[in-house]
Design a protein around this nucleic acid. Structure first.
Lengths: 289, 289
DNA sequence: CCCAATCTCTGACTAAAGTCAGAGAAATCG
DNA sequence: CGATTTCTCTGACTTTAGTCAGAGATTGGG
């Protein structure tokens, strides 16, 4: 299995990596081309560029200067915060970007071209699979404070979704509360999964001393479903519960959340009698770790 | 479709490419690491390195010198031809190679690690597909002289395989001849498919003026089967026949070669009466272009 | 045996990529 | 309001990567 992955890495870095460099190379150095491309149509804050391309600030600054003297971008102070600077493509920069786009298309075509119809279909299907599954591996699940910006984003989305899916809608005030204080150490934990700097899933634990820990706020962004993130969240939270000395984790859920229920069952959770009076609860589960 | 390929290129070069560089980086520059790796356990001629890594001879020479002063390889004149030099790893070089190996494994593991069992299986299957199909796109089919080294290699392998597969074995002298002179322009053509500098398939045409052209010596290396090379050879040779003014291509084949027969049929060849007295022939096919 | 071809090496470059330490402007926190 | 932090830039570097033109050894073909 490892061998197969290595063979893939080898073949792909050689073929795609090298060609990508080759195709993307205009008369401009690769670094600059990449920056120009990353800036995109609408421009981009310099600090975002820096984090996305993982470049040294001095180096990036110089690359931008070079693009600027070539008349491809304009860097100006950002509207809100005048410390941060925003790079925007000029008309010429846009044209050059479009050229890179066309080259990228040409590369893609050159990869399909020698193949027969059915081979192409297979290749594209396999590529989509690989891309999706590798994307899944990029998600990092980290503990954050429940009041953290990303955590709050997740919760907002989560409540909106519950409201849409529950037969009777969902009002957080009618539900049993889970205050930030209950979901931050030492009373509990809140974890968020991040992908490309955006939050894509979350989950929380409330500890109750020797009593079972409670699983709360499990949510995966619609765009990130099918990547196995629910299960990863569960595993992660169970690990944290166990580290905290909990032998049992339990949770309640609503009948509308069929995928979640299926996941709990297949992860070893067993349905038990209601252990609280959550008004939106239809099923109660627990798992001995 | 193009979009999917581009998405793949982007996601994968970023993820694999960057990590590959990162994991492979010891304290040694990447270029050197790649050369060391390519030399392998058993050593490797310098010219082979040069062609495989597509490096400038001066540059490679310097890289080798640097590896040599680091005590990782020894470069010495090759046994047969003392112009060519062979690089061999020292014990220390082998250790460093093993380290690279372990890192490469670690990278592969890190890609699988966040996934569930079934996701891993899917990922590995998809990777194998992608790798195989991308490998197929790397094969270049070019005309060569039938006495060319690579052409002769192919023919040798081809005859060996026929001898193994035919019920009564195969002796080229008993078969209808196809002299080099008959398979080089203007009397005919010989094409070889190359992958990573190695010949992996071949095929030939004999022209007979206004009479149908004859397809001969179609062979695909066992390791390269399933890449659609047979069909590509066929397409290529038919194109050349058509360019030469031939309206019809024909061929004979042996009943043991079932995949070949299936391919001919599905490529539009129809079985016809024997048009020659090839002793090893069981089926005769032709196709109107 | 000689001439042309092959193979590797050296010298002399250039360009790209990247690092590091700090300076200076603007925002934020107490 | 002042200290601290954030963000970007400049200057002064180093390291990699790569190119190009020969030189010098061998070898193979006639």
């Amino acid at each position: 299995m490892i061998d197969r992955v290595r063979a893939f890495n080898r073949a792909v870095t050689q073929r795609v990596g090298a060609l990508d460099d080759h195709y993307l190379s205009t008369d401009r150095p690769l670094g600059e081309a990449r920056v120009l491309w990353e800036i995109g149509e609408d421009g981009c804050d310099v600090r975002v560029l820096r984090s996305r391309l993982a470049l040294d600030s001095g180096y990036l600054s110089r690359l931008l200067r070079s693009l600027e003297t070539a008349g491809l971008v304009k860097v100006a102070a950002s509207a809100g915060d005048r410390r941060v600077r925003t790079a925007r493509p000029t008309a010429k920069g846009r044209r050059e970007c479009a050229l890179l786009d066309r080259r990228s298309d040409a590369l893609a075509r050159s990869m399909l071209e020698p193949l027969t119809e059915s081979q192409r279909d297979r290749l594209v299907a396999a590529m989509s699979d690989v891309e999706r599954l590798l994307t899944a591996t990029l998600v990092t699940i980290e503990p954050v404070d429940p009041t953290d910006h990303h955590a709050q984003d997740c919760l907002r989305e989560y409540f909106t979704e519950l409201d849409r899916r529950f037969d009777a809608g969902f009002d957080p005030r009618a539900s049993l509360p889970a205050d930030p204080a209950e979901m931050r150490p030492p009373a509990g934990t809140f974890v968020v999964g991040m992908l490309h700097g955006e939050p894509v899933c979350c989950g929380a634990l409330k500890f109750h001393g020797d009593e079972p820990a409670e699983l709360k706020r499990m949510w995966v962004a619609p765009a990130a479903r099918g990547l196995g993130l629910g299960r990863r969240l569960l595993t992660e939270l169970e690990r944290r519960a166990a580290d905290n000395g909990c032998g049992v984790v339990r949770l309640e859920t609503n009948r509308s959340l069929v995928e979640a229920i299926a996941m709990y069952r297949s992860s070893g959770y067993r349905e038990v009698a209601a252990f609280n009076d959550e008004p939106y609860g239809d099923h109660w589960f627990e798992k001995h770790l």
